[in-house]
Design a protein around this nucleic acid. Structure first.
Lengths: 238, 238
DNA sequence: ACCTGAACACCGTTCAAGT
DNA sequence: ACCTGAACACCGTTCAAGT
């Protein structure tokens, strides 16, 4: 199967796409998915795109701006879009939709999620993982238009972001492939072996080892989410 | 005021302490407290200690091992020490003590806390921020000896770590001094101004700006902790 | 307009050499 | 035994130069 020549006269197979901010960011996301955050360098990403590192600086304002772009591109998937969305069952339906949307992102890009979780937001009240003005605006107006007071909407926003951050950062860490973070492991050297042998000194940990490793994250997430929605409901009816 | 000469014949004022792993780690913690994680380099830390970077390699197994040492030194403050501790009021007292201990660490070292939160643990079930075999062993045996079944103790461990991680990572981010993370801000350049002007496009965010910025973290933490303890109590009595 | 080569100031890390 | 100088292979970033 020969590689053809397209009408424009460039070979299609390896010819790189025209560079753009969007292309660079999506290449960076896929790079991090495969190689981990620590491996993402301007030079390495340039090579992945068939270009010198310096070319990227036309489109992103340095590495920090690239990371910011990655965060923004992921979080913008959570914008409320009335055109394409099924109707929501009240504020609880909205919070369910939002929670599962963030969770899907964390599952699809576990190696990127720590970036969303720990990069310092532009304002202190722009709490991870909901790091977008539009998302926060949607959140507040959805709740306020459905009976929340200003204060209870803000309290809900704070409780909701803490809840998502704690659960999803731990789920993402558990799902990050271990070869993606080989860097830290090889460096540890002996510590993996010494870790496993030192477990025997801790009776409960040893005894419960297999149960501790079981994954119940689906059930735990849903149960905690339900609990939070119930709490919010009670404060509403106070 | 002249600098004296001590009995050993070395000048006391600037003479560096004898290097050791502990000294290096505690210097690194204080360096991160003042300058942020991104500024911590082997060379810079060496200079802080009055020594070349290469000297550190006698005591720490490279930068990754240094970061691991920082995490371990912080988390080991949470070891249960019967000798020095006031008696605990049952499992609820233990969980209260543990929660407030982790919170104190997060408040004292907000720039270090993301390290505790996001470094990949040695085992997947060693969940941040309780990243220590001894702490997990204490946790499980305290609860099991006080009436928890194996399964409910493990469920409590999972819920407790998610709770602490979400709340404390956000509290730590809010408390990290903005000049400590100047690196990301200067790089952003224009984005701080454009961010503040774009706020006007979001009515709820604009209207609630000052309320959004208020700090209720003490009350929120205590209320969420109480709620969690109540939930655990109910599953115990099921 | 878009990309690159060369250069600069930094990294982490190794190792032979000093004391 | 403990620390260092010099070196290596990498970074991010700038800027004049190419096409």
């Amino acid at each position: 199967m020969a590689i053809g020549t397209d009408p424009e006269g460039v070979d299609t197979a390896e010819r790189r796409l025209r560079l753009s901010r969007e292309l660079i960011i999506s290449a960076a996301v896929s790079f991090v998915d495969h190689n981990g955050l620590a491996a993402l360098t301007m030079r390495g990403l340039g090579k992945e795109l068939g270009v010198e590192a310096m070319s990227l600086y036309r489109y992103v304002n340095g590495r920090e701006d690239l990371l910011e772009g990655i965060v923004e591109s992921m979080v913008s998937e959570l914008h409320l879009d009335p055109a394409t969305m099924e109707p929501l069952n009240g504020w609880q339906g909205y919070l369910q939709w939002l929670a599962h949307g963030v969770r899907r992102i964390a599952h699809e890009h576990p190696a990127v999620f720590p970036l969303i979780a720990t990069r310092h937001p532009a304002a202190p009240w722009l709490r991870p993982p909901l790091r977008s003005l539009k998302v926060v605006e949607d959140f507040l107006s959805e709740l306020i238009s459905r009976g929340f007071s200003d204060e209870s909407a803000i309290a809900a926003y704070r409780a909701f972001s803490s809840f998502l951050l704690g659960h999803l950062l731990l789920e993402a860490a558990a799902r990050t492939k271990h070869d993606v973070m080989a860097e830290s492991l090889i460096q540890a050297g002996l510590s993996q072996d010494s870790f496993e042998s030192s477990i025997t000194q801790y009776p409960q940990v040893s005894r419960l080892g297999t149960s501790l490793s079981e994954d119940h994250s689906d059930n735990e997430f849903e149960a905690s989410l339900e609990n939070m929605l119930d709490r919010l409901d009670r404060t509403l009816a106070h």
